[in-house]
Design a protein around this nucleic acid. Structure first.
Lengths: 251, 251
DNA sequence: AAGTGGTCTAGACCACCGT
DNA sequence: CGGTGGTCTAGACCACTTG
């Protein structure tokens, strides 16, 4: 593929100016989407990509810079550039913002106890753009921090993307849910949006979390997206915030 | 100032390697801290800065790129690079994550009703690193969205930085609190950390927000920082999340 | 037309990692 | 040592804004 190929493709598909590094970035994202490079893999070096596209190293560099800023790639000096992965223990809790009040981090343990394919509730169908009653996997689990029951999660996934996802599979191994979805089903979560509210505990979750019925809980609704901002997960978490808080940084 | 000045300064102060663009960034941040360029001002052009430091445009560019990514500067093609400001209406709600359930944005109105210099409560003194009982300004206010009472804020500021801050001043004009603190006291908020919990409404805030005593509310504690990660504000907000939610994006 | 930021190049050298 | 990412240059040209 030559530089001219890139330029002409841009002009053909859109009259708006698209810089070279943007086109290269789009190409790299395409490789990730199509699974040509899998999570944890090294991608070709900057020099090699520059040759392949007939551009200078700096142009490839700018494309990779942006993708690294978006957590799609990870640079490691002297080694190469790698596809981000949830299987890296350092990324296990990338999306979990819960912190203990006293600041002392303790290991968290996930205890899934329910996993069934069900008709999508209307709210979930709307998020996924499914027909009402489309098939989704419904997971319920408890998260413990140092033994203490802190979070009750209800997770919904589009069933067609996760055939054979069972409670046994969820319970096997130490990896995080996103790590499992990534390695066993090829679906990678890259961003998410959360909506937070305060609610009163109902009977079910009061029993599960071991709190009084009516106790204030933090309700966290999350929509998670894969490449191309396609929603693939919706979840509803109830957090007991007696000994923990949800941490957020504003820039 | 020459390139050699930059290099030798780096070697003298620290044995660790510090790239040129880093040193230039530090210099630019210093200018902002010392108030040499004020919010809303244009800073010198990339070419001029490159000449001044005896480096190439690309090096200056990288320094400015990072600062733009941190919201310290704003680039405007064809016009120049500007110091970020809370006085820009587009930045009024930079730190406010509250959204209406129905997605229809309505204007918010701040109603401060209390402003006194008081001894710092222990929690606040700890955040500011003040001696117990140090002087802080204590502000109470209500935030309304389309007339509806939604947030009860209690705000604490280090008194020494804000002499003459009164209820009248807070009530005057349309600008946001951070815009006022920036233009009238020269203190600019650049980042913040929030801790969220669910709590039950006590009598005071139930009355203020017009909800039942015991109703679940979202408790948002914020520490806001100015240049150099110096904390200058601590606030405690109680959000009624019946018709609104706290929105957060995870990357 | 002049001035600004935005893109791109070709090549150099440095810092880091593995063998 | 060779290969990788990280820094830096000097200069070119493009895109946008303003006078």
């Amino acid at each position: 593929m030559t530089r001219e190929t890139l330029r002409s493709a841009a002009r053909a598909s859109a009259p708006t100016f698209s810089p070279l590094y943007r086109q290269i970035k789009d190409f790299l994202i395409g490789c990730l989407e199509r699974g040509e490079w899998r999570p944890g893999d090294v991608i070709p070096s900057e020099g090699e990509l520059a040759q392949r596209f007939n551009v200078s190293q700096g142009t490839v560099r700018k494309a990779i810079d942006e993708m690294a800023a978006e957590n799609l790639l990870v640079r490691r000096q002297g080694k190469g550039t790698f596809v981000s992965t949830h299987s890296d223990p350092r990324a296990y809790y990338r999306f979990l913002r819960l912190m203990p009040n006293d600041g002392i981090a303790v290991p968290s343990v996930s205890e899934p106890f329910y996993c069934q394919v069900v008709d999508a509730p209307p709210e979930v169908a709307a998020v996924f753009g499914l027909a009402p009653g489309g098939a989704v996997v419904h997971i319920k689990r408890l998260l413990r921090f140092g033994g203490e029951k802190v979070v009750f999660d209800q997770i919904f996934l589009q069933a067609e993307f996760f055939p054979g996802l069972t409670l046994e599979l969820l319970r096997a191994g130490e990896r995080s849910l996103y790590s499992l979805l990534e390695s066993d089903f090829g679906v990678r979560m890259i961003s998410a949006e959360e909506h937070l509210r305060a609610v009163a505990a109902d009977e079910e979750c009061a029993a599960l979390l071991g709190v009084q019925c009516g106790e204030p809980l933090l309700l966290v609704e999350r929509t998670a997206y894969t490449y191309g901002n396609r929603p693939v997960e919706w979840r509803k978490g109830l957090y007991c915030t007696r000994n923990h808080y949800y941490r957020n940084e504003l820039g």
